[in-house]
Design a protein around this nucleic acid. Sequence first.
DNA 1: AATAATTTTTAGGCAAACCTAAAAAAAATA
DNA 2: TATTTTTTTTAGGTTTGCCTAAAAATTATT
Lengths: 221, 221
Amino acid sequence: MSPNFSIAEENYIKSIYNLQQVNDAVSTTALAEHLKSKPASITDMLKKLQAKGLLLYNPYKTFRLSKEGIKAALSIIRRHRLWESFLVHKLQFSWEEVHEVAEELEHVRSKKLIDKLDGFLGYPKFDPHGDPIPDTNGKINIQQQLPLSSLPLNKQAIITAVQDQSSELLSFLSSLKIVIGTRLEIKRRLAFDNSLEIKCRNRQPVNISEQVANAIQVNPL
Amino acid sequence: MSPNFSIAEENYIKSIYNLQQVNDAVSTTALAEHLKSKPASITDMLKKLQAKGLLLYNPYKTFRLSKEGIKAALSIIRRHRLWESFLVHKLQFSWEEVHEVAEELEHVRSKKLIDKLDGFLGYPKFDPHGDPIPDTNGKINIQQQLPLSSLPLNKQAIITAVQDQSSELLSFLSSLKIVIGTRLEIKRRLAFDNSLEIKCRNRQPVNISEQVANAIQVNPL
DNA sequence: AATAATTTTTAGGCAAACCTAAAAAAAATA
DNA sequence: TATTTTTTTTAGGTTTGCCTAAAAATTATT
Ligand SMILES: [Mn+2]
Ligand SMILES: [Mn+2]
Ligand SMILES: [Mn+2]
Ligand SMILES: [Mn+2]
């Protein structure tokens, strides 16, 4: 059946998947930073993943997940996002607290557990950060979205997702009442620092930095 | 705050706790069998646990958990039994399937997660096998019970727990409709093999072996 | 009490997953 | 293109948790 990966291997597979979504070519250093480890450790693991057929790897050049590797990544991501949904909707965690706990829960490898959890939650399509949840066959609907920083001025859009790396960012957005589904538009863009003045229906406009605008994904109306 | 133990350490602590409940003196070989490893590996870990102050250890003689070690064990057992309850009552697992999955879930170390899960389940006092669940402070109510094999003839009793090591045993009992709360009495004891003929109210009597009777805990009425 | 059997520990090794420092390759710059 | 800088890999080492085989201690038997 489906092979069993170690926790370390799973964390590598998921990180590589996430990085290659953004940038087709993943680098050893980028992955080391993402995983808070050292480049030499990355190389060790790249060789192991290649040996297991999960990675297409040209030493000194590029690497990316094989078909097999992507399948494994989607299964881990499914677990991660379902647990996040459970924590928020059943245990009343707030959206910025769940990532860390899900980072551990995702490694409990029982297909039956995850499929039952999915049903218990009512087969959610998105996690609390707006990211799509792969179904039991690993099918994922990547939604059409762009970073808020690329949205034209005065164009209405709905927030579809927020990159959930940092819980600080998520609680900051919560405090501004900026959540998944919030409708907004950009009123002004400062050339000086690329910060944005954004306006939600019947609310005071607020200013956000370029970095924050990059982390927010929107779907233009 | 509370120190963090590795998964291996947690499994050792829990096994030692369980063994010393039955038999005050735990032996290296017994622990090795319980953990499906080798005596030499046990000795390695005993030294580590002693160094961390979790174990009172006299080489070549006996060992048992320190106060600190018992506290750690109860916390792991709390997690294990709450997850088992979740799996049975929320995800409709059957009682013989849950042990294996809970064996992994128990290692997710987040006090907040477990306390919220406890509330979500309605602060259950017992797990699906009838074993008491320690509360958030580690307090556990050990119920007055004895193995069915020690129950006198013709004395009514209620099943309070079943030792859950083997899922085979649990599904066997399910098929006989013998579950937690079932009221029964022993009608006959065969000296030949110590097997028992047991009778539940308005049901046909059934025969069970000495080993099965040892695994069933009862509370005499 | 001496010997035999059993249990436990020690000695030495291995694999996984990390690390630092050095070497090699690739990319950037002059 | 030659040189410098940056990136990546290799070499060698550590810790954790496991193993087998041998030695030591304990317990059982004569
Ligand atoms: Mn993880
Ligand atoms: Mn998420
Ligand atoms: Mn376990
Ligand atoms: Mn149980």
